[in-house]
Design a protein around this nucleic acid. Sequence first.
DNA 1: ATACGACTTGAAGTAGGGTTTAAGTCAAAC
DNA 2: GTTTGACTTAAACCCTACTTCAAGTCGTAT
Lengths: 164, 164
Amino acid sequence: MTYSIGEVAERMGTNTSTLRYYDKKGLLPFVDRDAAGRREFKDNDFNFLEVINCLKKSGVSIKDIGKFINLCLQGDDTLQERYDYLDQEESVLEDKVREMQSQLDFLRFKKWYYKTSVEAGTEDIHFTPGTKFVDPTTHAQYQNKLAATKNIRELIDLDSNDNQ
Amino acid sequence: MTYSIGEVAERMGTNTSTLRYYDKKGLLPFVDRDAAGRREFKDNDFNFLEVINCLKKSGVSIKDIGKFINLCLQGDDTLQERYDYLDQEESVLEDKVREMQSQLDFLRFKKWYYKTSVEAGTEDIHFTPGTKFVDPTTHAQYQNKLAATKNIRELIDLDSNDNQ
DNA sequence: ATACGACTTGAAGTAGGGTTTAAGTCAAAC
DNA sequence: GTTTGACTTAAACCCTACTTCAAGTCGTAT
């Protein structure tokens, strides 16, 4: 069974020009052509496409994805190298997840800050009296509430219920 | 206490041209100038810079960060709007984290795939005999091993120890 | 008083990741 | 047999987020 670029694009949730662009950038060296020069994707090519998708969503550049795909086509000699690459990529992704989680913490602090401000009708409740500086105790208050709560969703949601 | 653009750049781990670029794009409308026209950052401005940093790391575009900052300068009338924006941004970030975690799952499966291939000396162990198609049972094998293990690190690490 | 370093601006340049356009080929439907 | 729709290419274009450059202005140290 073979598939046209249009069928593949639809199945992968992308469009044909993006796939052609990837091909030009060396991400699809495994794709065959028919007599008329049209791309002919095989079932197994979806395994590659899945890997490309994963690396792309993990933030790997087109160039580096190309390098990995080309390692794949070099056979069993590059198995260890491919493992090592994915191992390193796993660490990179884990770091990104941790980073995002700490941005989430900050976002949730700010949500709490605005929620309490909305309730008070003014942001001033968080300022050190007489200045336009956010009171350092503000963040401490939040940390205390947070420590006393299983998760932040609960904190935000319980607060909402308090007001109803 | 005020700070020059150079001091701020160093403290924020960026450089002066990036800060000027942000200013030009409307991200720093709160920054004052001295008599000679030089930017003069105040202590409180670091609160804004922290927010900019958080949104940037969360993947928010320069343009949208600018909108948020400008809401901040419009006073208490926009508190609810700011809360709603961060609430939505929290969901977006949570989705991203979930997405990354599923990419991590896939990456770990592929690590297992390569690890077992390296041990066997060939990728062929995962192919349906007589074809160059990855055997659909490969992923099932991995899922079974995974189900029998507390976490994937353990799976990967136990496998490594088997070989020593 | 002059040199140095840090600042200012506008404008141009770069990199990454596509998207669009123009001109053409081909197979199947009418 | 011609029209339609899906494909082909190279080249141009676009957007985001910087980065670099050129020319000029300050304040301070020598």
